[in-house]
Structure formats: structure tokens, C-alpha cells
Amino acid sequence: MKPTTFRHALRESGRNLVRHPVITLASMTTIALMLLLVGVFVAFTMNALTIAQKAGQQAPVQVWSDYAASDATVAGVETALQKDAGVLSYVKKSPAQNLEDFRKQLGGRSGVLDGFDESLLSWSFTVHLKDPAEGQAFVDRISGVPGVRKVDLSLPVMDFLESLMRWVYAGSAVGIAMLGVVALFIISNMVRVAVYSRAEEISIMKYVGATNLYIRVPFIVEGAVVGAFGAITAWGILYGAYSSLLESLALPATSTFLALLPLSSVSLAVLAVDLVFGLLVGSIGSVLSVRRHVRV
């Protein structure tokens, strides 16, 4: 295709977008609605995965030092925890602090601990892991550190959280795939309608000597433009809705596991997914639909 021919074809795509306003608007609206659904699902999935991940990190692993361990030994255990890649955070408690916690747990019956020798208790580390699936591996690693007497891991809880995360991942993947297929189907049909409404125009262009490429280029560009505009529209609606949701629900601070993801991280991901989807489906859908009409 000559450069001038290509320029004419590009210019034709711009003119067609303006010349068929109803079809353009209908296509854009359909694509925007479908991509809005995709975006909502992406936002939901991101939040669900984050919450599941944070919930998994809540279940603590208790690490107990040897009885009457020296300061150096306790420092060694603490260093091992600091260096361990699977550790998210830990809280170190002295024997005196642990005794105080026992007293609080006993409440009115704490008198039984009067005169109790706190040196009979050990130092403890309440550890939160980044990934509950790594629980047993962490236990195996930390158990070998000198000065560690006992490691308590609530395996059923860890297994449940790990299983929960797997289900959330799988459910999200299936949901996005199904929604993607539905969106693809609906957007393709809309594009097909747009192309079909210009079937006569395409056949006239063929009679006058237009090559298949000359006919397709404007539709590819139009499809991509309509897809991109639909994606941006969907993103804009979702941006507004999500920020309103954050304000109106006034959920806990981001450090707790129930908090929704910040607007910036969700909006970027949604924009990326919607744009790629809109551009691809818009342009590829146009090409596939035009092929049926270029056989004159």
C-alpha cells in the first residue's frame, strides 16, 4: 500500500467515525458497559485477593525461646527472624510480659500466679508470615535456630487460609475469563452490526478498485478508537464510583486486612486491562467482521 493510500485510508477512518454518529455512539456505549463490568470484576478481584492474603498473614506463629535463655541467645533468635524472608512482622515479649498476659487471661483468678517465678517462662515471638502456605517451611527453618525451644503453628487455620486464597485465585480467574468471553461476544456483535450497516459501502469500494487492505485499515483504526474511548469511559465511571465508595464506607485504615485497596493502585490496573481489552477486541472484531463483506 502506498503511503498516500494509507494516509487516505486513515483519514477515511476519522471521517467515518463522524459520519456514522449513531453507530459509533452505540458501539462505544456497548463497549464501555462491558468494560465497566470487566473493570468492576478486576477491582473486586484485586481487593478480594488482597484481603485473603492479609487474612492469611493474621494467623500468628508462636516461637518460644529456651527457658532462662541468655540475652545473646534471644538476640540470635531475633536476628534469625529479621533475616527470614517469609516473616512479615513479629512481636517480641519478655518473660515478665508473658506473665502479665497470663494474668490478664485469667482475669479474677490471676491470684494463682502470685509469687510465680517469671524466670520459669521464656521469651516469646509472635510472628506473622507473608504467606500462610509457607507456615510449615518456616517452622522447619526456625526450629533449627539455636535457642528456639518450641514453635506453635495452627496448621488447620493455616491450611484453611491457604485453601481460601487458592479458591479466590481460581474463582477470580474463572470469573474474569467468563466475563471476558461474554464481553468479547457482545462487543464483537456490536462491531459486526457497525460493519454490516456499511456493507453496501464496502461493496461499492470493491467495485471501484479498493484493495481488501484499503477497506480494512479504516475499520481497524475505527475499532481501536471506539474500543479505546469505550475503555476510557468505563474507567472514568469506575474511578468515580470507587472513590465515592472509599469515602462513603470510611473503612478501616489500610493497615488492617479489611481495608480496600487505594484508588491509585486499582484505577491503574483497571485502566490497563480495559484499554488492552478495548483496543484488541475493537480492532480485531472489526477485522474479522469486515472479512465477511470484502468478497465481491
Binding site: T5, M205, G209, A210
Partner: peptide, 8 residues
């Protein structure tokens, strides 16, 4: 457009 098609 008949001329545009031939790249005039």
C-alpha cells in the same frame, strides 16, 4: 475517493 483508492 475513487482517486484516493489508487493513491493519487
Amino acid at each position: 475517493f475513487a482517486m484516493e483508492i489508487v493513491g493519487a
